[in-house]
Design a binder for these strands. Sequence first.
DNA 1: GTTGACAGACCGTCCGGTCGGTATAGTGTC
DNA 2: GACACTATACCGACCGGACGGTCTGTCAAC
Lengths: 192, 192
Amino acid sequence: MPDGLPSTDSRTRILDAAEAIVRSRGVSALTLEAAARGAGVSKGGLLYHFASKEALLTGLLGRMAEWMQHDFEATVASQPEGPGRVARAMMAWAFALTPERVHERCDRAAAVFLAAFHHDPALLGPIRAVVTRMRAAVAADGLPPGHGHAIMAAGDGIFMARLFGLYTPTEQERRDLHAALARLLEPPSCAC
Amino acid sequence: MPDGLPSTDSRTRILDAAEAIVRSRGVSALTLEAAARGAGVSKGGLLYHFASKEALLTGLLGRMAEWMQHDFEATVASQPEGPGRVARAMMAWAFALTPERVHERCDRAAAVFLAAFHHDPALLGPIRAVVTRMRAAVAADGLPPGHGHAIMAAGDGIFMARLFGLYTPTEQERRDLHAALARLLEPPSCAC
DNA sequence: GTTGACAGACCGTCCGGTCGGTATAGTGTC
DNA sequence: GACACTATACCGACCGGACGGTCTGTCAAC
């Protein structure tokens, strides 16, 4: 056959299909049969690769945790060294100039989050580990205490807004938000 | 009979029980039977008051939206007038001195959020309306653009962290976070 | 002929929702 | 005040469908 889209291995296709289902039709639509159909395999085929629904979700989360870790590290590495480096990376991560990529990542993460959390909150363990590492990196960033965490919390907040579809900031609002948070990267105002 | 705890009306008891189930055992444990048992009525009794599961969730959300609106307005009213009043209220709301009350509200909101969202994201409509009003109030607050929204986003972020159990800031971290965000309430630093 | 990679019929359970019933309180009416 | 009727609040057996998971079968490749 001519190599088309389904040339990737079944495992990956199943994970992609599961993610797509949650994104488009919600957590409650993620059934084994639906994921199998989306990946072009039968239910039995899916269960051959993932022995249970929990295994499927674990696979989804593992992939995402790994990707988060790598992507975050890469973003930090792309920032110039010096105090606030990690915080700047955080802002670049959350407010990158190309919103499409941010939204893509955001939506995928949201889908995996919700699906795993609904099945069993304990499944979020790998994500918690990544977040803990991020928080540690932010805290040891050379900024005054709390500043990095404030930026991170704000990033989480707009993530959540998107997760639940609470609101979508306009481009201008995003820029203003970015500018406001950037103040936290500067040294505290002098007392003049 | 001596008026004891179950003196409240069944409707309220059912809503309370549903909330409690989601908080203690997760969204997937919220079944009509479980909620009925928790409220001390039968499944038929529950369905007498809430004709469907969706009606139950709508009731839960309506109650919470109403409470959010009232509580937020009261917090704003408790702040001194002037620029940044709404933003200060936001901070007081998210970082009140008594974490127990914040956590209580936070956990209840989280439970309702998740349950409704899982059933049908469209159910969050009333919450979206409240959030939209809050954002409008924050934007017309007299602060430089973006500053209020940054504070609000940070509050949302720590809410989400608690929602998913990602991390729990220590008391010191909360104070530092508060101090950092408080900088956004001050006029931008002078250029000295 | 053995193994890896599936297919798909089937089963048990669970859950939302229906429905016929019941106890109690209130209301008209003679 | 006895009786019929109605409405409210609730009970719980039952149904139908969906879903996770099992199991047997298939089939090409080595």
